[in-house]
């Protein structure tokens, strides 16, 4: 629907020559940007509306005293819909543990929440198609569930930092929202989020368009193709310090896959960027001992690397 309008604008109005590299790249850039902004606006609104029905307090109540597996599965799914921001990762983490949610379920939540977010999903859907978006959600959930179970089994509760606090003196009373409140909240949230990521979307898609037009096909096939076994762990490692948001990274990665980067390797990279972030580790250091942080990063990292190899094997 949008494609003919963009083609008309680029080739008829701007009189760009069809087939020329620059006009192709411009066409690609305009089409992707408009498509992604439309998708972002719609999906972020829907997701934030759904989120008004979930709060960390409610999620915590659901997860409390759940058995292994059930608790981990629920935590991973609730991680998608519960509002989360890495700046409140510490009170959330400790708030869960303090209330009696198991360490394993808390970690399942902590993995899925930043990894499976609305922005990443829109970018994957818009640039890679719904199949890859579904693969990302499915393997993200699996990594969250398994990592939580593994960490839970390690019995490392003593590695959680102890804080000097009394039993909770009061609890947050949430007033029920009306339909109108939810609408106003979601609209505000959508606008604020778009405002904070639009520049990354433009930069990411711009860089992607440049790669699409100017980098020779199969340029990266030798370095990051399926036959290169260490591409997956390397991509995961590079993703850790790169705390860029999904908005900027996914268009870039999408363009790289056209140039020979294998799909599993690309998935590993995107997952490492979203789930393993250095700034979040630094924040979380306040709530857990370094050893636990290393266990957390290693278990999730291994899960991501495994996923990369798996999809390099089965996806063509």
């Amino acid at each position: 629907m949008i494609k003919p309008i963009i083609d008309w604008l680029v080739y008829d109005i701007l009189k760009m020559r069809q087939g020329a590299i620059f006009s192709e790249a411009l066409d690609f850039f305009l089409y992707d940007t408009i498509k992604i902004f439309l998708l972002l606006a719609v999906i972020i609104f829907i997701v934030s509306f759904i989120r008004t029905f979930f709060s960390p307090e409610r999620t915590r109540a659901i997860l409390n005293n759940k058995h292994e597996f059930t608790g981990n599965v629920l935590a991973a799914f609730l991680g998608i819909v519960t509002p989360f921001c890495s700046c409140s990762a510490v009170p959330l983490f400790l708030g869960f543990i303090e209330a009696g949610v198991s360490l394993g379920a808390t970690f399942s939540f902590l993995v899925s929440s930043p990894m499976i977010n609305e922005v990443a999903l829109v970018m994957l859907w818009g640039l890679f198609g719904w199949k890859v978006a579904l693969i990302y959600i499915g393997s993200g959930l699996a990594i969250a569930i398994v990592s939580g179970i593994v960490i839970g089994r390690l019995k490392v509760e003593d590695l959680v930092e102890r804080f000097d606090y009394k039993k909770q003196v009061c609890c947050v009373q949430l007033t029920d929202m009306t339909f109108n409140d939810r609408f106003v909240f979601s609209r505000g949230y959508t606008l604020a989020l778009l405002k904070s990521i639009w520049i990354f979307v433009i930069l990411g898609v711009g860089l992607g368009a440049w790669i699409h037009g100017y980098v020779p096909a199969d340029f990266l096939a030798r370095a990051a193709g399926r036959q290169n076994w260490f591409a997956v762990p390397l991509a995961t490692l590079i993703g850790i310090p790169l705390y860029s948001n999904a908005a900027g990274v996914i268009p870039f990665v999408s363009a790289l896959t056209e140039k020979g980067v294998a799909m599993g390797t690309a998935l590993s990279f995107m997952m490492a960027v979203t789930a393993l972030s250095l700034p979040e580790f630094i924040i979380l250091r306040k709530a857990m001992k370094l050893k636990l942080l290393i266990i957390f990063a290693s278990v999730v990292g291994i899960g991501i690397i495994f996923t990369g190899y798996l999809f390099n094997l089965i996806l063509r």
Partner: peptide, 26 residues
Amino acid sequence: DIGKIIEYGVMMTPALAVDGAIVLSG
């Protein structure tokens, strides 16, 4: 102070308390 924040039962910052009672968080 994280200890204080948890005492108040807040899991999503920022939160506002009036006269010692949390009125809204997140």
